[in-house]
């Protein structure tokens, strides 16, 4: 049995051509079909005259774990710009056990309303080989501008479950990468594979009633129409139960979420 030289070369070339052209590949995020929420016909709108608010605090019950130091010596471009040591940001607390980087949002109770995405983009910056903010909240279809302020190359790699995954590089001085997510998802892990300690989250929500807490742990969801709502507090490590609350016209209520500082995070 003989095989021609031409046959062998054709086989090899064909395989490589298949690899280059037919192996999945990144698809344009803009080509993704918009989610129903983003595409929905105009529904009810909020009447400011009757709107109320839900405010409150997020706390951590127990001693917060000591955050590990991150060694960035392997990346001199970042090491020389930092004045303070870099530590991981899974658990960031303030005075009195207040907990930062918690997404507080309305999970249900707003059915029938429509909320257009804000035109202003969310800024998501890589600075000192760290993401700022650590947890970014945004609405469905709202733009997020990914900015590289470092003098080194990063890749930005969100790993969603409900949205389309992408992975793009961003050299120093490059223009911001503009992206948006088509579906609700709390929360999408984001990582840089060039610098494996760089981790963050993006929370994508269908309504504007959400906030990501600072170190003071406070949140304030304003301009909320009267109704009964399920409010969820999400943290990357810990879990807590949702709460149901009823808001009357012009009513203001306070809610406290408490996470338990357990080793497993549950």
């Amino acid at each position: 049995m003989k095989i021609t030289r031409l046959g062998i070369y054709s086989l090899a070339l064909g395989a490589f051509a298949l690899a280059i052209t037919g192996c999945g590949g990144k698809k344009d995020e803009s080509a993704e079909a918009p989610a129903p929420a983003a595409n929905a016909p105009a529904g009810k709108t909020v009447d400011p005259a009757t709107a109320g608010e839900v405010m409150g605090t997020v706390k951590l019950d127990g001693a917060p774990p000591k955050m590990k130091a991150i060694s960035i010596a392997a990346e001199p471009a970042c090491a020389k710009t930092r004045t303070t040591p870099l530590t991981s940001e899974e658990v960031v607390t303030g005075d009195g056990g207040s907990l930062a980087n918690v997404v507080v949002y309305i999970k249900s109770g707003l059915e029938g309303y429509s909320f257009p995405a804000p035109s202003a983009p969310v800024k998501f910056t890589q600075e000192g080989c760290q993401y700022h903010p650590h947890v970014a909240g945004m609405m469905v279809a709202q733009n997020v501008d990914v900015i590289n302020s470092d003098q080194t190359t990063h890749n930005i790699h969100p790993i969603p479950m409900e949205n389309r995954e992408w992975n793009e590089s961003q050299p120093p001085g490059a223009a911001p990468i503009e992206k948006s997510f088509a579906r609700e998802e709390v929360a999408i892990p984001v990582k840089c594979n060039v610098h494996p300690w760089m981790k963050a989250y993006m929370a994508v929500l269908p309504n504007p009633y959400f906030q990501v807490t600072d170190k003071d742990g406070k949140f304030d969801l304003k301009n909320l129409p009267p109704g009964t709502y399920t409010i969820v507090a999400w943290h990357e490590l810990y879990k807590t139960d949702p709460q149901t609350i009823t808001i009357g016209a012009k009513e203001s209520k306070t809610v406290t979420f408490t996470f338990k500082a357990t080793a497993s995070g549950d």
Partner: peptide, 17 residues
Amino acid sequence: PDWPLAYGSLTPPMVGG
């Protein structure tokens, strides 16, 4: 993030991963 090229070239920045 790209293949078969690396950062669109044959000489990517040799940093980190």
